[in-house]
Design a binder for these strands. Structure first.
Lengths: 337, 337
DNA sequence: CTGAAAGCGCTAACAA
DNA sequence: TTGTTAGCGCTTTCAG
């Protein structure tokens, strides 16, 4: 039988209220009694029951985190940012993998709400009507990380995927390329995969270049689809001269696919990735990529959530963090810049 | 004001006890009343309060997970295994990054216990006296994943790092090498880094080869230390001909270090890694490595924990999962095998 | 098969 | 500065 606040109170010769006060750092306690209580706590090895506290106070100092896949380097880095800021603010994280399945996401949200989390951070590629329905009726604040809500109602922290896609393509255009291919993410994701692709199309059209369907390979962010994409592109009569990939993993796949056929990067083909995960520095040639501040997205999302949980007024509920081109060896050195 | 079990009871015209029964799937409820209650729940949009339930039942269906760094591919994969099995058994995970700092590990353990988790899974490289002191007095079961307790008291799931180190070295020995270098992990980790190194030493000594200090580079599992290790080894008068690395990241670093100096892997130097993270397949040459079942370690650890939480008797509290050599292109094809 | 009632351990007024 | 006293929302005997 564990020791309760009541045991401590008796041992210290005070009331539970007083014990509660010292445990919670309430200043209204005479130093002498505080000392007595502390001694009793020490002596008995008292450990406050957070569940009871949660029930009485209606705050659990726990937030729920819904993530598609914690074993993905991208999301793992985001999660790290979330956890670091959370622990800074004394919150704990209930982490749930959703596998990106909508029904699981919804179900998890509900479980988290049952557990009385003080807030939720949601990562996922798509925000459907159903999501909106659940999220907007949530009794606690929910912020999106690495995605955004199409209607702009929900708080979110993300980059501009469209601009990022545009910039990457532009970068290649500036190198003098006209035959630029793209390995996209799943286009079923309207807010991420599709946006990056839109950026690519826009850059091309702004440059007066017609997009060729044969220069677009629909990937799934994974290494293997980069490999296949390279094979497809290299089998074309008129091959592209540069390839923009919607993820670093695919970019590395593309590079290897190219190298396996005896060509060189960047001499024969230039390749640009997306994300800037650690892998980008662990390949040869090292990968030129769109740097996305993953850790910061998580950290800022969590910080934002703390504000909502504290009832603070938030000026800007949609945060767009900056991205930038990280130039390495998979592209040729541009003259200027 | 959220709807409570009491509201449902009134709406359905029954007692709270009955509502509780149907919510918990207790069979002792007449189908008719069950239907009535379900209707009321639906109608009111009732969502059970897990905190209240936890206080009353003394079970939270939540387990704590202490992890050095969720952004490490190795631990992320373990975490995935844990989470999958946890959700299979309807548990949620409170995930806490410890940064491998002992005081944080201890502090987190305490917080988790305050939150009344039903069990804990601990990942970390070292188990000190202090850990033992805290873990053995825990009111809930604790299982170690990816490490083990030196005294053999605590339940754990791991591989044999010593044997794995031995096998990797042996593998290189079988290829005819006599000058085998090793890039170790931190030797301050007695149960992981040191064990792999011990395996290396043992294999060498069993083969009648004297270990040379200049062939040992003390790394930290990261890519950069592989790079430095390669530089050190290649600057030796008598260079090693094969290098065994205690992590895949370091192995990739070593390979790049070698390639950067104009040499080839495996032609000039053979390299073996450790872990078999996804990266191992995403480099050229693809990495021969010691495959460690990371996902399974997590999954089995969680499964083991469920048994303890259910009060089931466990025959074998120390589980050693198999490892194996995964032969790829960073080593030459051996004739036999 | 159902209801009444006693807590679970703590917080938060409210008094004193 | 401290104590008293209600609950928080639910589970769980124990009766019936």
């Amino acid at each position: 039988m564990p020791v309760t606040i009541y045991d401590v109170a008796r041992e210290a010769g005070v009331s539970m209220a007083t014990v509660s006060r010292v445990v919670n750092g309430n200043p209204n306690v005479k130093p002498t009694t505080r000392k007595k209580v502390l001694a009793a706590i020490e002596q008995l090895g008292y450990r406050p029951n957070a569940v009871a506290r949660g029930l009485a106070s209606k705050r659990t100092t726990t937030v729920g985190v819904i993530i598609p896949d914690i074993s993905s380097p991208f999301f793992a880095e985001l999660a790290r940012g979330i956890d670091d800021v959370a622990s800074m603010y004394k919150y704990n994280i209930i982490l749930c993998d959703s596998d990106g399945k909508i029904d699981r996401e919804l179900h998890i949200t509900n479980t988290l709400l049952e557990k009385q989390v003080d807030g939720i951070i949601f990562m996922g590629s798509e925000i459907t009507e159903e999501h909106m329905q659940v999220f907007t009726t949530s009794p606690v604040p929910i912020v999106l990380a690495g995605t955004k809500d199409p209607t702009g109602q929900l708080p979110s922290v993300d980059i501009s995927h469209l601009e990022a896609g545009y910039d990457a393509t532009q970068f290649l255009l500036n190198e003098g390329h006209t035959r630029i291919a793209m390995v996209t993410g799943p286009l079923a994701e309207p807010l991420v995969g599709m946006q990056r692709f839109e950026g690519y199309k826009k850059a091309l059209s702004d440059a007066g270049i017609n997009m060729k369907d044969s220069y677009v390979y629909n990937g799934d962010y994974r290494y293997e689809s980069g490999l296949s994409a390279a094979n497809q592109f290299l089998s074309l009569i008129e091959k592209p001269s540069a390839i923009f990939c919607a993820s670093d993993e695919m970019a590395v796949g593309v590079i290897h696919g190219i190298q396996d056929q005896g060509f060189k990067v960047p001499e024969d083909y230039e390749v640009v990735g997306f994300d800037n995960i650690r892998l980008a520095e662990m390949v040869r040639p090292r990968l030129t990529t769109v740097m996305q501040p993953m850790y910061d997205i998580g950290a800022v999302a969590m910080r934002l959530l703390t504000k909502y949980m504290n009832g603070e007024k938030v000026e800007n509920h949609i945060v767009i963090l900056p991205h930038r081109m990280e130039e390495r060896q998979s592209t040729k050195k541009t003259g200027g810049q």
